[in-house]
Design a binder for these strands. Structure first.
Lengths: 338, 338
DNA sequence: GTATTAAATGACAGCGTTGTCATAACGCAT
DNA sequence: ATGCGTTATGACAACGCTGTCATTTAATAC
């Protein structure tokens, strides 16, 4: 497998295989009437050069574009990811760009391959990466190798050759913890987020800073590891609440885990917020639909995403790669806290 | 504005305007050095012919593709729309197609324009339409005019020139109502869904059939109009529960409205399920995250969407437009019903 | 009015592929 | 070997646009 300097085209393959471009075309499109022997030679050349046909050229010759659309009504109550999608989609439309989505389930061995395909097949020129993928080492390496312009949303480490947007997670978490402390709580449980998300560490740091400044001694027992999903929040809450001296408030690193905590409190017959205060993070639809509705933190997701998308597009057009300031979060007080 | 028979290209415009194709190109790309007079002539010709430049050809000449990617981790707990997106995205990837998303907020005066742009700009060859857009008259007309191959998800009326997928909503709703009746309930409230969604009527019909077969007299007071959102469910529940003789069970036409109902029950101090049984529809993440978790109906969304997408792609490739049977739903019993 | 310069316009190649049609090689029966 | 019908291969135009560079036209100065 060689490292193709410039993009290889059908001529390169034809030359290497010692056949005409038409024959290469036939092999690529699985057409009949190619000797097995020849087919193999061509296939080898393709592999060696890492050749991928140009979708644009194909389309131009009358083949379809292999693009299909999906129309849907944009409802209000979207989850975190959805808010990002919508914002990015809108920003792209305004700039005359087309956005192609690619969801992954981690761990994913075919990740590199899939990203490469995204470039060749779907013709993407730049890529926006959401957490926790934004910090995925293999992915970042792959993107760099492909010299793919990148915009990272809330990454832990921000390479300077990428557009990055962040928000003041640490400060928001600090503010939230102070808010809880000011309501008279002293034993405050904390459920950490998924360790792969940069936000997790930031939010935890804010909690720690608040305790320190308000002179509350840190009790390791009150710190739980969660993974941003409902079940992990539930499990963590169960453990916290069965402590000999349980917390009177629990700060969960996102709304899903807060929902799990709320569920667990119910199971144990604890009244919220009177016997237990609970807070979330992200202000998803869930937060306002639970009973009682959750006190949480609202990130300016739409603004962040729009900025990242615009930034990426600007770079693609050769403009200055502007540096983005962190965006401010805001506490949303509801009824899950005393 | 003429009706272009075949796709107009830059030559048509040049001829009509009496200039060279290069000049047309200059106008289209807002390049300098074109006399105002000339520019106008060209612009007029473009309008009259409804010309839109070919993105594929542009890309081939070295301009970028104007496509950017967005990578995200595929989490489990997705809403209804998200499940559809993910399934469609996956089906497309498997078939070597690229899926382009376009969210709308209704009502939208620029809908037709946006769809046209989707065709020209994003080069889509076929379109999948989700409810309630699947029944949007103006949209359907526009798509038909453009001769755009279409796949409709859960439409009310199914034109035979479109791929359509449906599921057994009526039967599922009937089964659910019977389930509730069999638990001893006689006064069962029903919160209807958004009138624009085909599913709303189907679900209501199932409820009616169950009452009839079980010889329970229909009480109009127990029927409420909702709109599939949390707030409308809450409002409907409030009204139902303040009736002189309130229902002992409420069937909401989706999970969001069931969540609103649950909230309202809490506000009124009613125990769920002992004093009030509640059911939802769709089996979204919300349903299992609430307390108590909701009894609801699970649609095979992934299967439906995959079938629709595959069907559309088959048609695009000139194969037989297969007819799809309705998909079966399944009741998921949880703790919100006695 | 003519020379000089700048602005406006056009002719043409090239982008990477596939379709058409011509040509070359093969397989087989004579 | 010879001829014939396949099967395999290649040459070349076409797809619709933009870049380069040549040419025409207008504007300005003398």
């Amino acid at each position: 497998m060689e490292q193709p300097k410039a993009k290889t085209n059908i001529y390169d393959v034809a030359e290497r295989a010692g056949v005409s471009i038409k024959t290469v075309s036939r092999v690529v499109n699985n057409e009949p009437n190619v000797r097995a022997n020849t087919r193999e030679k061509v296939q080898t050349a393709i592999e060696e050069l890492g050749y991928m046909p140009s979708a644009a050229a194909r389309e131009l010759t009358g083949k379809g574009s292999r693009v299909i659309g999906l129309l849907y009504e944009n409802s209000e109550d979207f989850s975190y990811t959805n808010k990002i999608l919508t914002a990015a989609l809108n920003a792209c439309e305004e700039e005359g760009y087309t956005l192609v989505l690619r969801p992954f389930t981690l761990p994913n061995p075919r990740l590199a391959e899939s990203v490469k395909q995204l470039k060749e097949n779907a013709r993407v020129e730049g890529i926006i990466v959401l957490p926790p993928l934004a910090d995925h080492k293999a992915l970042r390496k792959q993107l760099k190798e492909m010299a793919m312009p990148v915009a990272l949303i809330a990454p832990k480490t921000a390479p300077k050759d990428a557009i990055c947007v962040r928000c003041t997670d640490e400060q928001a978490s600090y503010d939230l913890a102070c808010f809880v402390i000011d309501r008279g709580h002293q034993r405050i449980g904390f459920i950490k987020g998924h360790p792969d998300h940069s936000a997790s560490a930031e939010r935890f740091a804010g909690y720690l800073r608040a305790l320190k400044e308000r002179k509350i001694e840190l009790d390791e027992q009150l710190i739980m590891q969660g993974y941003f999903d409902y079940e992990s929040g539930k499990a963590a809450a169960k453990e916290l609440l069965s402590l000999p001296s349980p917390p009177t408030a629990i700060i969960a690193s996102n709304d899903d885990m807060a929902a799990g905590t709320l569920f667990e409190a119910r199971e144990l017959g604890l009244g919220v917020p009177h016997q237990l205060s609970i807070t979330g993070f992200d202000d998803t639809a869930l937060a306002s639909h639970l009973w009682p509705p959750l006190t949480t933190v609202k990130q300016p997701i739409t603004e962040m995403t729009t900025a990242a998308t615009r930034g990426l597009i600007q770079r693609l057009q050769g403009d200055e790669p502007l540096v983005l300031e962190p965006f401010n979060c805001k506490i949303v007080v509801r009824d899950s806290t005393t």
